[in-house]
Simulated scan of single mutants.
Amino acid sequence: MITIRAAGPEDFDLIASFIRKLADYEKLLHEVVFDDETLRRHLFGDRPAAEVIIGEVDGAPKGFSLFFQTFSTFEGKPGIWLEDLFVEPDARGSGLGRALLSKLASLVVERGGARLEWAVLDWNELGKGFYRTIGAAPVEGWERWRMEGDSLRSLAG
């Protein structure tokens, strides 16, 4: 049986473990540099920057989604950005990934939102194939851009 629940502070170690497993799958484990207390504060402090849901199969945690609110000025409505989605290898194909995304879609609808969005690594054909089966599609004409590190600090003054 699959269940989806909101994460709480007591799930922090589980969330940190899922983040590291996702980064390892994405061949980006070397980029995981978060400080536990900082991440904990941003997830469960006075002003959370993101939310997490945990997916369980037969009562055992097997996956998670970390997400945060976005806003579309064109639609005049909020949305959700899915930052991380991870399902343990032994639970893939169980329907857990779909259940996690279904919960996020229902949150968008419940919150009066316009869209659910995320990025996919260009080499992740398995992920892209799965996303297509649930009706998702790449956004034509857009590139993802980023500013960080020295250039971010330089622009900030």
Rank of each mutant, 00 (worst) to 15 (best):
S106L: 13
L104S: 01
R144E: 09
I15T: 04
P9S: 13
Y131C: 02
L104V: 03
G45D: 01
A7M: 03
S154D: 09
F44C: 06
A119H: 11
D36F: 05
E75D: 10
R115L: 04
P9F: 08
A60D: 10
P48D: 01
E37H: 08
A136D: 11
L104G: 03
N124K: 13
K27I: 02
P138L: 00
V109Q: 15
V52I: 06
H42E: 12
A137T: 14
L14S: 06
G76F: 07
F74A: 13
A99D: 00
E140I: 08
D122L: 08
L82C: 05
A119Q: 13
M1V: 07
D24M: 13
L96T: 09
R92Q: 11
A7P: 04
L104K: 09
E110R: 08
R146T: 01
R41N: 08
L66W: 03
N124T: 10
F86L: 01
A114H: 14
A7C: 00
S72R: 11
D11H: 11
L29E: 13
L82K: 05
L155E: 08
E143V: 14
R5Y: 02
G8D: 08
F130I: 02
Y25A: 04
L82H: 03
A99G: 04
A60N: 12
L85K: 06
P138C: 03
A7L: 00
D36I: 07
F68E: 00
R132D: 11
I2A: 00
L82V: 02
L96H: 09
L126C: 10
I53E: 05
V33D: 15
E140L: 07
L100C: 02
P78T: 00
G141S: 07
I134S: 12
D46I: 08
L28T: 15
E140Q: 13
L85S: 02
G79A: 07
F71M: 07
E117S: 11
